[in-house]
Simulated scan of single mutants.
Amino acid sequence: MKSLRKTPYFIAYIVLGITTLPILLMYIWLILNSFSTRMKYGFIPDHFTLENWSFLWSPIKQGGTVLPSIWTATWNSFFFSGMLTLFEVVIGLMAGYALARLNFPGRQKIMKVTLLLHAFPSVALLIAVFYILNFLGLYDTLWGVILVKTALQVPMTAWIVKGFFDEVPWDVEWAGLIDGCSRLKVWYQIVLPLVKPGIAAVTIFSFLSGWSEFLLLYSFIVSDDNVTLSAYLQKLISDPNMINYGLLSAVSLFYMLPIIVMFITTQKSLLQVSAGGGKRV
């Protein structure tokens, strides 16, 4: 009987193992290739070397050009992701609270079109965004792309945060208002601490979205001083005849390290997020 009860678990583990095995093999190959001069038969490392990681202390020379410093790209990536996270979370929290608690004209229509705005492909807006950024003098600046990315992400963030605010009882806010607190003070000191898991979730997802952004950065950033790691990788594969796969593997691992560290340190916060948030319309 016990073996029959465990059968579904064995089947689940087998299915999960089969589906994740190709992904694990790709990561293993990436690690081995980054520390090898070449790979025999495509997957057996030939000779251990740190030459592929020399980009950490010296510039990369590709053909007749010298790529910008990897540390410049790393700083730009952290700056872009950090500022995007700050703007998106702050604006999303205020917008989500307004949608959850305030009755204003057009509130229901805004909630109905929120998901539609988020689903609109950003590639269709590239030409319009280019003219706007160029007119404002923000073309080829990280601030310009930060503002564009924030505008595209805020609708979904506000919708998600609204679900967490809906779970906070009205009685908690009324108690604060009766005690003499202003609406802003109630929101900041009473309501926000009750939705910390939701704030942690949208913060993590916002940072990951900024760190992995490529299309907008590649389209509106042209100078090496503003390059990010995602666009840096594109420079390494811009010429198919000159791709150094060992170097590409090392830079890719370097690009992944902050996300791996972030996942390890924040997984407890993600596990505390409630799967179902009430959507009170």
Rank of each mutant, 00 (worst) to 15 (best):
residue 79 F to K: 12
residue 230 S to N: 00
residue 102 L to N: 01
residue 7 T to P: 07
residue 130 F to E: 02
residue 8 P to R: 00
residue 174 W to L: 12
residue 123 V to A: 10
residue 175 A to Y: 00
residue 62 Q to G: 05
residue 31 I to T: 02
residue 202 V to E: 02
residue 225 D to Y: 08
residue 114 T to D: 10
residue 111 M to F: 04
residue 99 L to E: 05
residue 22 P to M: 09
residue 242 M to L: 10
residue 237 I to T: 15
residue 228 T to F: 03
residue 176 G to Y: 08
residue 122 S to K: 08
residue 67 L to S: 15
residue 133 L to N: 08
residue 164 F to W: 12
residue 12 A to Q: 04
residue 145 V to T: 08
residue 80 F to G: 07
residue 89 V to Q: 03
residue 132 I to M: 06
residue 23 I to H: 13
residue 202 V to H: 07
residue 169 P to L: 03
residue 79 F to R: 11
residue 222 V to F: 13
residue 49 T to R: 10
residue 21 L to P: 03
residue 204 I to N: 02
residue 38 R to N: 13
residue 161 V to C: 06
residue 169 P to I: 05
residue 86 L to R: 03
residue 134 N to W: 10
residue 256 M to Q: 05
residue 114 T to R: 08
residue 95 A to M: 10
residue 15 V to N: 02
residue 73 A to T: 01
residue 62 Q to W: 07
residue 107 R to Q: 13
residue 34 S to Y: 02
residue 128 A to Y: 00
residue 67 L to V: 15
residue 161 V to A: 06
residue 231 A to V: 14
residue 157 T to C: 12
residue 7 T to C: 13
residue 281 V to I: 14
residue 192 L to G: 02
residue 201 A to H: 07
residue 140 D to R: 05
residue 145 V to A: 05
residue 109 K to I: 15
residue 239 D to R: 13
residue 109 K to R: 14
residue 119 A to I: 13
residue 152 L to P: 02
residue 40 K to G: 13
residue 172 V to C: 01
residue 141 T to I: 11
residue 150 T to I: 06
residue 218 Y to R: 11
residue 11 I to C: 05
residue 179 D to P: 01
residue 277 G to E: 08
residue 46 D to E: 15
residue 170 W to L: 06
residue 28 I to Q: 05
residue 231 A to H: 03
residue 85 T to G: 03
residue 245 Y to N: 08
residue 235 K to I: 05
residue 173 E to N: 07
residue 124 A to L: 14
residue 5 R to C: 03
residue 106 G to I: 10
residue 159 W to P: 10
residue 93 L to T: 11
residue 103 N to L: 06
residue 229 L to R: 00
residue 255 Y to K: 02
residue 181 C to H: 05
residue 277 G to Q: 09
residue 40 K to H: 14
residue 220 F to H: 11
residue 37 T to E: 15
residue 63 G to P: 04
residue 173 E to L: 10
residue 164 F to A: 09
residue 212 S to E: 03
residue 182 S to N: 01
residue 75 W to P: 04
residue 157 T to A: 11
residue 93 L to R: 07
residue 222 V to T: 15
residue 149 K to S: 12
residue 156 M to L: 14
residue 215 L to G: 00
residue 70 I to F: 15
residue 49 T to G: 11
residue 191 V to C: 00
residue 68 P to T: 03
residue 10 F to K: 14
residue 62 Q to R: 11
